[in-house]
Simulated assay, not measured.
Amino acid sequence: MKHLILLSILLFMVLSLQAQSQKHSLLFSTRMHLGSILAHSKELPNVQQTYPWGLEIDLAWQLQTENVWQYCYCFPKTGLSFFYTNFDNPSLLGSSFAVYPFIEPTINAQEKWSLFLRFGAGPNYLNNVYDSIDNPTNNFFSSPISFIVVLGAGAKVRVKEHIELRLGGIFNHISNGGLRLPNKGINFPTLFFGLDYRIRPVPFADYSIMEGLDLTPRDSWWEITTLATAKTDIKGYARYPVYGIGGGYYKTFGRLNAWNISMEFVSDHADKQEIKRRDLTEDGKLVDHHYGAVFGGYNLLLGVFRFSFQMGAYIYSPFDRGSLIFQRYGINILLFDKIQIGTNLKANVQIADFLDFRLGLIL
């Protein structure tokens, strides 16, 4: 989990450095959330009458230079958010406290009415996790330090030069990425209402579309990636290393998009421990804990950042991992022209498997 916190700090530092300009508006935002918890597994306790509520505060910049606008024909907002959530069930779930960097592309930000998308991820603290004696039914989460991912959308209306009201919805997911079990994770969509206050408003310029502008450094590329993390076995007593190597082909389309097809080979020693514990054998030998997979998906390219969603399938997996397919959600930061770091959350359908740290080389 330490590498996730460091990556979030690095992400915020990069965003902050890009935003330090008199051409960007400085904003303070606050909003209230109200939502519900999705029961994505039959093994979860009944929380149908539980309605989480929360308070969120942002310190952010509205990026307003022409170079930024040409990327998406929009003025993105980026910054750091503090998000407090009360799960409306203190004896079982308690509360969460998250601090995460985010990016929020805003369409028609210069007009009275505007629309926005929001993506963010970062560390999260939970104050009432699973305990075999004091809280044995909470199999949503067992690690106080976890990770939150948010994805949302909404609309804003400017009521004064300094003030905008906002309304929207957001999907929130909290998980520890398999570092400690049980870890079913918690999914809780919320509706929110709040306001943005422009501490330092900067007038919006009227930019024109530059046809043929190349916003990506390459049309296609090959990539080699290494990954590493640690996760617990099913019993959840200790952590074991997970590491692997992969590669793939990427091809851009449009101005900010790329598709890819990739494969990876992973050695999962938490699964190896589980195989030993259950004495799973084949032809007199322990079942192999390695797996190979192919996957592909969509990548959003925003300057030095890449946000990705991948769907994959196991092509070699003697050990039963509960599903033949899996998903990956990731964010990478391009540090140099051909070197990038990032993190990926791998999930077998609705259950998080592990959260990894990765280092990639672009060929």
Rank of each mutant, 00 (worst) to 15 (best):
M1G: 06
I5Y: 00
I5C: 03
I5K: 14
V14S: 01
V14W: 00
Q18L: 11
A19N: 08
Q20Y: 00
S21E: 06
Q22F: 00
K23R: 12
T30F: 00
I37P: 01
I37G: 02
L38R: 00
S41N: 07
N46V: 11
V47N: 06
Q49W: 11
T50K: 15
T50S: 13
I57Y: 00
Q62A: 07
Q64V: 04
N67F: 14
V68G: 02
W69H: 10
Q70A: 10
C72M: 09
C74Y: 12
P76L: 05
G79T: 04
L80H: 02
F83H: 07
F83S: 06
N86A: 12
N89R: 10
P90I: 05
S91E: 03
S91A: 06
S91N: 05
L92I: 04
V99W: 01
E111P: 00
E111R: 14
W113H: 13
S114F: 13
L115E: 04
F116G: 06
G120F: 02
G122K: 10
N124C: 14
L126V: 13
N127P: 14
Y130N: 09
S132M: 09
I133F: 12
N135R: 08
F141N: 09
F141M: 11
S142F: 06
I148Q: 11
V149Y: 00
L151T: 08
A153Y: 12
A155P: 02
R158C: 00
K160Y: 06
E161M: 04
H162E: 04
I174Y: 05
N176D: 08
G178S: 07
R180F: 11
L181T: 15
N183A: 11
N187S: 06
F188L: 12
P189H: 12
L191S: 10
F193P: 08
L195I: 11
D196W: 10
D196I: 13
D196R: 15
Y197S: 09
I199A: 13
R200T: 12
P201H: 08
P203R: 07
Y207P: 07
S208A: 15
M210A: 12
G212K: 14
L213H: 13
P217F: 10
R218L: 08
D219P: 11
T225V: 12
K231P: 06
I234P: 02
K235C: 02
K235P: 01
Y240K: 06
I245W: 15
Y249N: 10
Y249D: 14
Y250H: 15
F253R: 13
G254R: 15
G254I: 14
W259H: 10
W259I: 14
I261M: 10
I261D: 06
S262R: 01
Q273W: 07
E274G: 00
E274A: 01
K276E: 09
K276A: 02
D279T: 03
E282K: 05
E282P: 03
D283S: 07
G284T: 03
K285T: 03
D288L: 01
H289N: 05
G296R: 01
N299R: 10
F305E: 09
R306S: 15
R306G: 08
F307T: 14
F309D: 03
Q310T: 05
Q310S: 06
I315D: 07
D320L: 06
G322S: 03
G322A: 04
L324D: 12
I325A: 05
Q327F: 15
R328D: 01
N332A: 09
L334V: 02
L335W: 05
I341H: 09
N344V: 04
N344K: 13
K346D: 00
N348E: 01
N348M: 04
V349Q: 08
F354H: 15
